[in-house]
């Protein structure tokens, strides 16, 4: 039987135009299908968040008190949630760097698909994995006594906000993954700035306890806005302008970095 001649299945040439939605779903499906087969990813997505919740809660819980919060956990948990989903965005840069080093990006770019679908599918599947991570964390937090003090709708809104921001950062990570040379480099370039971003913020402490200049930095940090918004929504407190800032930052990140990443993708070859 002939290997490639014009008979049998798939002998007609494809007539359909590239479809961003279908192609993105195909690409997302590729990543989602391998999650259960990839133990490192599973561990990172489930065990690490559990560890963070337990460590921060037990280590810092006794020695930190925040004015206005009787229970530090109610203050801390939204910060841990925010940090963990934001850390989850690193998978975008690692995954893309891995595909690039294996030559898969070259293969995908030589197919008649919507090119942006490769990045949309990747960021979307990373978002879904972050949802899994989030659920695991939430369960542990509830076991430790964390509760939604506001409405369920507000809590869902706060969660959506955290995931939206991490989705924006996924696009930043996409640009990083396509720009650095290796998986190792993607790992460190993806992570290194996350530490100052998440610690110089309101995630674990009240920013007014910091020296003035550092407090100014922390207050301007988009991550502070996102954490404050989620925390207010989980605790049923007034949100002020934090939600507007958080949504604004997230959308700005998505728009700017989706543009830059897709442009970069069209010029990238291993």
């Amino acid at each position: 039987m002939a290997i490639a001649s014009e008979s049998g299945p798939l002998s007609g040439s494809p007539t359909s135009k590239p479809n961003v939605l279908t192609d993105s779903l195909t690409e997302a499906g590729r990543h989602l299908r391998i999650i259960p087969r990839n133990s490192e990813v599973l561990i990172f997505a489930t065990i690490q968040p559990v560890m963070f919740v337990l460590l921060f809660s037990y280590i810092f819980g006794g020695s930190i008190s925040i004015p206005g919060f009787d229970n530090y956990d109610q203050y801390l948990m939204p910060g841990i949630f925010a940090q963990t989903v934001v850390f989850g965005s690193v998978f975008t840069s690692i995954g893309l760097a891995e595909d690039l080093s294996k030559g898969l990006i070259d293969r995908l770019r030589s197919l008649p698909i919507a090119q942006s679908a490769v990045l949309i599918g990747r960021t979307f599947s990373d978002l879904l994995r972050n949802v899994i991570t989030f659920v695991v964390m939430l369960v542990v937090a509830f076991l430790l006594g964390f509760r939604f003090e506001g409405s369920l709708a507000a809590a869902l809104g706060g969660t959506a906000l955290l995931l939206l921001f991490s989705y924006g950062l996924s696009w930043v990570q996409a640009l990083i993954g396509l720009s650095v040379g290796s998986v190792e480099a993607a790992n460190s370039a993806g992570f290194i700035w996350m530490f100052p971003m998440t610690f110089v913020s309101s995630a674990f402490i009240a920013t007014n306890t910091l020296p003035d200049w550092l407090a100014a930095v922390a207050d301007a940090n988009p991550f502070t806005h996102v954490t404050n918004a989620a925390r207010a929504l989980y605790n049923g407190n007034p949100v002020g302008d934090s939600v507007v800032w958080a949504v604004g930052w997230s959308i700005a990140l998505i728009v700017v970095f989706a543009f830059l990443s897709i442009r970069k993708f069209n010029q990238t070859s291993s």
């Binding site: 040439s13 590729r30 080093s101 294996k102 030559g103 070259d106 030589s110 197919l111 008649p112 291993s270």
Partner: peptide, 21 residues
């Protein structure tokens, strides 16, 4: 490029397979 991509097959220097599939 899109019309070209419908007509070509590429096997690059790396075995570009999704190893976990």
């Amino acid at each position: 490029p899109r019309a070209v991509r419908t007509r070509i097959g590429l096997t690059g220097q790396y075995a570009a397979v999704e190893e976990r599939l």
